[in-house]
Design a protein around this nucleic acid. Structure first.
Lengths: 133, 133, 133, 133
DNA sequence: TTTT
DNA sequence: TTTT
C-alpha cells in the first residue's frame, strides 16, 4: 500500500555516488524543507524580527540512472522536488549499539532551479536527455 | 517548502494518547505499508510460492483533536490513509549516546476500514462528527 | 514540473477497455471521492441527521499493462488508491461546439478492497503477479 | 476519502480576485506544468533539436486569506507549488449547452520564486506574515 | 506489531 | 454511477 513522499527544498551538499559490489550505483544527498513556526495561529519571530523557521533535513537516496542524473546536474543550493518513499534502516554501530535510520528513496526528481551542466572528459556537455525538464 | 507524506496501510497496535504539561495531547500509533519485492522486474516469491513483501513500519504522531478522533475510532488492524509530514527527532539515551528518530506528524487521517465505535461513560456512542467520513 | 494526483475512493462502474489502432490499450473507470461538507467549522447534516457529503466523480484512464490489471481485478464498488496526473482534453462535438474535459492518467493503482479474481479461458485464475499487493 | 493534488509550475497570468455577495473572496490563476514527451522510452525532439514538452494548464482557485496572499505576492511567471484538491463544475452556457469544468481548489501555496512585494496605500510593504516562507 |  |  502506498508510501508516498513529496519534498520541495534546497540541496544541502553536493551529491555523492558510490558503487556496490553488485554493480548498483547509489547516490546520496541531503535536502532541507522549512516551514514557518506557528504558535496559537500566529507566525513566531525571533528577537530581530525574523520569522523562525523549522527545518527538516532529509537524507535522499537514488539508484542507478536517476542517481547519475542527480550526480551530474545537482549541486549544493539547488532547489529540487523529490517524489519517493520512506525507508527505515537498522544497523549495529561500532559500540554494538542498535541504530535506526530513515531515508527517502527517490523515484523522481524535478529541478526547480537551473540544472548544473557537466562536461564529459571530451569537453562536451552531457546529453540533456538526462535532465527531466 | 513542502514536506508531504501520504501513507495507506494497516495499524499495528492500538493508539496511545498522553498529555503534556502544557495541555497538548499527543497520540501515537504505528502503521505498516507493504510493497511486493521485485528483482529484475519480476515479483519475488518465497519457497512456498508466496510473494515476498517489504514492510515499512511508520511511527505516526497526532495532536489534540485529530489525536482524540484516532484514539476513539482506530484500533489494531484497521486500514487508514494518513496525510502528514516527516519530522526528525534527536535525543540522548540513558548511556549518553545521541539517538535519532523519525516520525510522521499526521495532518489528516481517513478510515479505509469501518471505524471503531466508542461509547461514552453514559453508554452513548461518541458523536459521529468526529469521524472523518 | 510535477503534476501529481492521489485519489482514494470507490469505483463507480466496472472498468472498460478498448484498443486503439496503434495497439495501445486504454482502460477507463470512474472513481468517487467524498468529503463531509463543513460550514463555519461544523459538519453539515441533512434533515434526517445524516452528514452531507460532497462527492467528486473522477474519470480515470490507464494504459496497457496497468489498464489490463485494472480490467481483470477491479469492479464497481471496490475501493482503490490511484496515483497519477491530471490531463486536460479538448474536442469538437457534433454541433461544432468546442468541449473541454479532464481526466486522471493513472500511474499506479493500489487495491484497498479485496481484488476481484478473474478466471482465464482454461478456468485457471489469472496469475497473482498482476495484483499489486 | 482523499483527493490530493500537488502541482509545481509557472503562473500563466497575474491572479484575479473577486468578491461574492456572501462575502467570500475568490482568487483565480492559471498554472502550467510541463513534462518532456517520451516515445518508446526515448525523449522526443522537434526538428530544431529541442525537446517536445507537453504542457497542462491548470485553473487554480483559492478562497479568502490564501487568495489574498496569492493576489498580493504572486504574478505571471512565478514558480509556485500548489497543494489542493480537484473540483468539477457544471453549468449551462448562453446557448443552453451543458458545460463541464475542472479546477484545483488550493489549500496551500508555496513560492518557489521570490515573492512579489506589494505596497499598501500608505506606502508600507504588506506584512510578511502573509508570505508562507 | 498490521494486512492480503 | 460508488461507499459508509
Amino acid at each position: 500500500m502506498q508510501n508516498i513522499v513529496i519534498l520541495a527544498g534546497n540541496i544541502g551538499q553536493d551529491p555523492e555516488t558510490r558503487n556496490t559490489q553488485s554493480g548498483t550505483s547509489i547516490t546520496h544527498f541531503t535536502l532541507a524543507t522549512s516551514r514557518p513556526r506557528y504558535s496559537e495561529g500566529k507566525v513566531v519571530r525571533d528577537k530581530d524580527g525574523y520569522r523562525v523557521q523549522d527545518t527538516e533535513w532529509h537524507r535522499i537516496t537514488a539508484f542507478n540512472g536517476l542517481g547519475k542524473t542527480i550526480q551530474q546536474h545537482c549541486e549544493k543550493g539547488m532547489k529540487v522536488l523529490v517524489r519517493g518513499r520512506i525507508h527505515y534502516t537498522k544497523w549495529t554501530d561500532q559500540q554494538g549499539v542498535e541504530r535506526y535510520g530513515c531515508e527517502i528513496i527517490a523515484e523522481t526528481v524535478d529541478f526547480l532551479s537551473r540544472a548544473k551542466q557537466t562536461q564529459n572528459e571530451d569537453g562536451k556537455f552531457i546529453d540533456d536527455d538526462d535532465i527531466p525538464f
